[in-house]
Simulated scan of single mutants.
Amino acid sequence: MSRYEIVFSGQTLPGAEPEAVKANLAKLFQADAQRIALLFSGRRLVLKNNLDAAAAEKYRSALERAGARVEVVDMEAPIEEIELAPPPSAEAPAAARAPGRLQVAPRDEYMAAFADVDAPDFGLAPVGADLQEERGEVSAPPVDLGQFSLAPVGSDMGQAEAAAAAPAPDTSHLKLVE
């Protein structure tokens, strides 16, 4: 006989208001706001487990009437078997390897899947070796500046003339009274 569990991930049914669903679940579970907030944290929570089919359906319908989307999961569902890659052969013959290519022995079954990857063998430089190629002396490009000259100090370099100051306003009609 199969056993089931009720799983909730914080999702509501389409068209259900989240605040109304929270209030319905608080009344259904007789829980405070803090516990209801934990239900809506987005984590996958098992609300009830070890139920028969009739009881699981009863819980599912009650929670969906409250507006919560739940899953009924078979606890005895078969576990999927994963087939591992076969271990690599002892050593590939030297003729099978191209010159300058790297041959890597896998460290475990997971890495055995990458045994046939063709990677270049870059090798390692000795300690203290300079890894950049030497560059020749860089010379300045030939630029002819003979057409340019410097103006003498204080000379006019073609700046725009400053606008003349406006005349002072006439204040002769103003008087100070004591």
Rank of each mutant, 00 (worst) to 15 (best):
F8S: 07
Q34M: 09
E91A: 12
S139K: 11
A160N: 12
E71D: 14
A140G: 07
A162C: 06
Y110L: 10
V46Y: 03
P86L: 10
F122E: 12
R69Y: 15
P14V: 05
S89L: 11
R101C: 12
Y59P: 02
V73W: 00
L145T: 13
F29Y: 04
T171A: 14
V153A: 13
P14R: 15
S172Y: 03
F8G: 02
V70F: 00
E161H: 09
R35C: 10
T171C: 13
F29S: 05
L63D: 01
P93C: 06
N50K: 15
P87W: 08
G154A: 08
V72R: 09
L174H: 14
P86I: 00
G158E: 06
G136Y: 00
Y4R: 11
K58Y: 03
L124N: 14
F8L: 06
Q147A: 13
L38A: 14
S41P: 02
A119I: 12
P88Y: 00
R3P: 03
A16F: 15
A163R: 14
V117R: 11
L45R: 07
A16T: 12
L124Q: 13
Q159S: 05
Y59H: 03
N50R: 12
A16L: 09
D108A: 03
R35W: 01
L84P: 04
A94E: 14
A31G: 05
N49W: 07
A56Q: 00
F40S: 04
V7R: 08
P14H: 06
S149W: 13
Y59E: 11
V177K: 09
S2K: 14
Y4V: 02
L176T: 06
A168S: 06
G100A: 08
R97N: 00
L47E: 01
R107V: 03
G67V: 07
E76I: 09
P18R: 10
P167L: 00
P167G: 00
K48E: 08
D144T: 07
L45G: 02
P120Q: 07
V138E: 08
